[in-house]
């Protein structure tokens, strides 16, 4: 049994999740809280990957990052690096596809508490950074964590866009979803079943934990003891 797909999937989904957590939290904090012209258009663009077929996202990324694409040719020319057909490509696909989940969770999370709590901290002389780390972030954390789990699960299961951008290169871009598809394709049912069961167990655990966690957090600030 070759376990490379497992470690590769963890590496790709893990990297994507870290980047999405940072990007999603910052953008949600900046965009969701403020009013400015074009806000709805920007938010729609950010959320677009939720409604688009992954192949469309993959095609778009392939265009952007391909050898002749605007970003791809730039990277190739300046740092001699090609993103398509590498695990970095798979990370980018996972980022784009899972970002909307984090963004939605984070924008909701930053609206779950009274804004005056932050204002009170400002009047006490706290800097913006201090208020973010000591007030906004801890209060939004339950929602951010929920977004984090959804992001990781989505990134782990990403198939369509990954296949288009990173292709199927055994031991290099062969994530679990790709391994399942190509195992079935080549009649290797046992391997396919092994990975399918693994994915179900991971996904179920994530969901179970998420449900338990959100239930616990509803109680957190309301319980009398």
């Amino acid at each position: 049994m070759n376990f490379t797909p497992f470690f590769l999937s963890l590496k790709i989904a893990g990297s994507a999740t870290v980047i999405v957590l940072i990007l999603g939290t910052i953008l949600a904090r900046v965009i969701a809280r403020n009013r400015f012209p074009g806000k709805r258009i920007i938010e729609s663009i950010l959320l677009l990957p939720i409604v688009l077929p992954p192949t469309v996202v993959g095609f778009g990324l392939l265009y952007l990052f391909g050898k002749n694409g605007p970003i791809g040719s730039f990277l190739l020319q300046w740092i001699d690096y090609q993103i398509v057909f590498t695990w970095t490509g798979a990370v980018i696909a996972a980022i784009v596809v899972s970002f909307p989940l984090m963004y939605q969770s984070a924008s909701a999370a930053f609206q779950t508490y009274d804004r005056n709590v932050e204002n009170a901290a400002y009047t006490m002389g706290a800097s913006k950074l201090k208020v973010f780390w000591t007030i906004s972030f801890p209060l939004a954390w339950p929602g951010l964590l929920a977004g984090l789990i959804l992001t990781f699960s989505r990134a782990l299961g990403e198939f369509g866009a990954t296949l288009m951008v990173a292709g199927y290169i055994p031991n290099q871009t062969e994530t679990i979803p790709l391994a399942i598809y190509f195992a079935v394709e080549s009649g290797n049912t046992e391997t396919a079943i092994f990975w399918v069961v693994s994915m179900v167990i991971i996904g179920f655990s994530a969901m179970l934990w998420l449900n338990w966690w959100s239930g616990r957090n509803i109680l957190r600030f309301t319980s009398e003891n």
């Binding site: 005056n116 709590v117 204002n119 009170a120 901290a121 009047t123 006490m124 002389g125 706290a126 209060l139």
Partner: peptide, 28 residues
């Protein structure tokens, strides 16, 4: 705001829900 040094008591008090009374008071 931070540089004005003006105390503000909000209508709903705006205590930090995730901190103890002690931590709330020592924040600033």
């Amino acid at each position: 705001i931070q540089k004005r040094n003006i105390g503000y008591l909000f209508q709903d008090y705006a205590l930090f829900p995730h901190m103890t009374v002690q931590k709330n008071i020592s924040y600033g």
